[in-house]
Design a protein around this nucleic acid. Structure first.
Lengths: 188, 188, 188, 188
DNA sequence: CATGAATGAGGTTTCATTCAT
DNA sequence: TATGAATGAAACCTCATTCAT
């Protein structure tokens, strides 16, 4: 049920990860605990599902942006991917923010890794077709690219971003990533 | 007591955040729970202390590196700060890794913010003296600098870094940060 | 419905008494829980019914055998009753086995007592007509007779009877009961 | 703690197996649930321990009686073993009675089998030395002997034995077992 | 009649914390 | 000061039962 999903995020934000109990989530969702357990076999499964949906959305956004800019110039690629990433993370800013707090409660390592792989694959494929640059170790470079987007985003969300900074974020991240890629591009 | 400190990290790494109980920590430390409670008034305080020590170390390393390179060129500054950051995080790699897992158990936001401020202040002060560049919004730029270091480091530690990547990390991070700063430097 | 009956026994055997839930029984029976509750007002009633049918069958077998051997000799009586008892218990060996596990879940004392009374009454009436023996305290003797049959049968079913022992059981039980009755018969 | 032991039996008798909850046991024992769980890691372990102590006592009584009558005559052996068994079961009649109700709640099959083996071994060893009888299949015969004691005892305890019957039980059981053994003894 | 999602009381278990020794 | 048994609130989860469809 979708109400349970939303309730989980709300409780996470309102009460914190430590106060997130199945009972509280059910209450907030307006259902009984029993009902919650009919949809999710246990607490971990619930959190896992919430995290998964969020990560999947972000990954899809990145993949779409990457696919759409194959064969473009670096600056276009970076603008597209960074834009998609920031937008996906920011669109449901509460969700993203809340989920940083559960990822560690959870055996989510595999899930996080899998999504990270997906992102890197999309980025690698994209960069390989750049019209104005060529790269040596695409695995390493796409890893850095991803991490370079994740770092400031996380810092911003966790820090309680000021509106001004949030607006500035996208431009700065483009600068960060583009600067890096140009620095690492093989000499023509 | 220092044994309690170490025990906390060991338990965190061995059993995970969910299994970290005061009794288990005391056991691992070779003392009784009662003793543990004589040093730390409650579980949160213990975790807080552990997190604080780690963050303080990193902050000190960054501050020292930043102070040492006042008036130097950008590339020297970046090399120093990135080197100090990576070294501090990597030196006690288990500790760093373990602590990512407690941040959520804890109302550590304030602590994390405070340390982040410290880092940014040090970096701002440093960048203001760069011999070969000048910047407009130092607050924003030092924020991005910090976040650009944190992102790949975290990704690497959480992902179970391969030795090869770990070695490559430092160079890549220099590239990332230096590329960014040059891109953002005001035209001479 | 008979499917519910069978399902109950299957669940009991397959999953144990602790795992026997109304939902599981309904599922196994291929109906919905709601339907189950239209046939049995509650879980106890279901178990009660299953136990009752089993006990009734055994009692009927014993009664028939007893009635059929009125006025016969002791050895004939014992052979008939033991044979009927063992056959009835063994015919649906899974059922018998399963039911030992619910007796405690259930306030079945009264039911068990009532059936025991029925068995003893039939046996008493039979023994009173033995052509070659007379007894003093028929209530006591028929109690012992019943219990002497029940003991080894239960031990065998609960212990997971080896085929060899199962075959031997009937002869041994005749020996047990006949030896007892002859020992207790009043001197002619 | 012994209070928990006793409380378990009392709750079993007073409230029935279905009402036996860890909370209730702790309450009755005058301790907190937490304390209960410091002595027994879970509910099953508690019940298991109670059952085990009872069965061990009975087995010890049977073994002692059997050992003490090696080389005696059958009638002496039977009197000793039956006497010991009935006494052990009757001494703590409430305990014995209560335990019939948990044995099935529990994965006690192995325990029960092990104790049964112990009893049969003791009885076999004893019977092998009888001065006035020899037997063919001692495994089978000791199985029947044990079961012949268990049957009436159980029937009596479960049925709510009348004092008169309880007194008569021992004599009747001797008669039952002795009659059987004589019937099965090989011809001299 | 049949269904099965929803309910929620109640069971088991954990664990931060205290305090008498 | 150190100990660790005792505490009990509170978490997770189950499952008999109901009732709108």
């Amino acid at each position: 049920m979708d109400a349970i999903f939303e309730a989980t995020i709300q409780v996470l934000l309102g009460d914190g990860a430590r106060r997130l109990t199945t009972t509280r989530v059910a209450e907030r969702a307006g259902v009984s605990v029993g009902t919650l357990y009919q949809y999710y076999p246990n607490k971990q499964a619930l959190l896992f599902a919430v995290l998964q949906r969020h990560l999947a959305r972000v990954a899809e956004a990145v993949e779409a942006a990457a696919r759409a800019t194959h064969h473009a110039r670096l600056s276009v690629m970076v603008a597209a991917v960074v834009g998609a990433f920031v937008h996906a993370k920011t669109e449901r800013i509460d969700e993203a923010c809340a989920l940083y707090r559960v990822a560690s409660e959870l055996d989510s390592t595999e899930l996080v890794k899998a999504v990270a792989r997906r992102n890197r694959a999309a980025i690698s494929a994209m960069l390989a077709t750049a019209s104005d640059a060529r790269f040596d170790d695409l695995a390493l470079i796409s890893f850095m690219f991803s991490a370079a987007m994740a770092g400031p985003t996380r810092a911003m969300l966790e820090g309680g971003a000021s509106p001004k900074m949030l607006r500035a974020l996208r431009g700065q991240m483009e600068s960060l990533c583009l600067g890096y890629l140009r620095h690492e591009a093989l000499p023509a």
